[in-house]
């Protein structure tokens, strides 16, 4: 039976560095893909990927009870990428999305979180594809480019209130779509 991510993290904590190789095999494509999309530079993306796996090993801040390794690495990669893009003001808020900032979290990891990377990719793709185009576009500009809603308003030449509505409705619907996939 394949080792879970939590198993591998525990092995890494025990000094078995081979576990890092297995985590790398599972998640390098995800981390590098996010880094490349956000930084649009292969050398920078490689450098960031190294940094992320260094943090995973040396800082040891991943907690399996709080979510999947994929979500953790995605959030961390995005935060560090935005830092490099000098969108620093958003960084703490982004990190808060991983930390427990509003209250105790239900520690039950959902089946969705435990799904394979390929399965999650399919679910999230469907969830995003079902959003109205503008809603999805605003969410992606916020997520991948770290743009504020004011900046998006200017870029899309759309009133700020409308951008805000698109973003909120988009995230609400994405959340509902992902919930329905889990329940189906």
């Amino acid at each position: 039976m394949a080792e879970t991510d939590a198993d591998l993290v525990q092995l890494l904590r025990n000094g078995q560095t081979a576990a890092l190789g297995k985590l790398y095999d599972r998640y390098a494509g995800l981390v590098y893909g996010i880094a490349l999309k956000m930084l649009t530079n292969a050398a920078e993306a490689e450098d960031l990927t190294q940094e992320i796996f260094l943090i995973l090993w040396q800082r040891d801040t991943y907690q399996a009870s709080r979510g999947s390794m994929g979500s953790y690495l995605s959030t961390l990669t995005r935060s560090r990428a935005l830092d490099r893009l000098r969108v620093g003001s958003n960084r703490q808020r982004i990190l808060n999305q991983w930390s427990d900032d509003v209250g105790p979290r239900n520690t039950t990891v959902t089946p969705f979180e435990q799904a394979s990377i390929e399965e999650r990719k399919e679910y999230v793709r469907k969830g995003l594809a079902e959003l109205p185009e503008k809603h999805r576009q605003v969410l992606e500009l916020m997520y991948f480019e770290g743009l504020s809603q004011s900046q998006i308003s200017q870029r899309l030449e759309t009133p700020l209130g409308t951008v805000k509505t698109w973003a909120r409705k988009g995230l609400l619907q994405l959340n509902q779509n992902l919930k329905s996939f889990q329940e189906s």
Binding site: L30, G70, S71, S74, T77, W98, K121, V124, N175, L178
Partner: peptide, 9 residues
């Protein structure tokens, strides 16, 4: 859900 967005990439 928001953090899952890049997993569609």
């Amino acid at each position: 859900s928001y953090a899952l967005m890049p997993q569609a990439l």
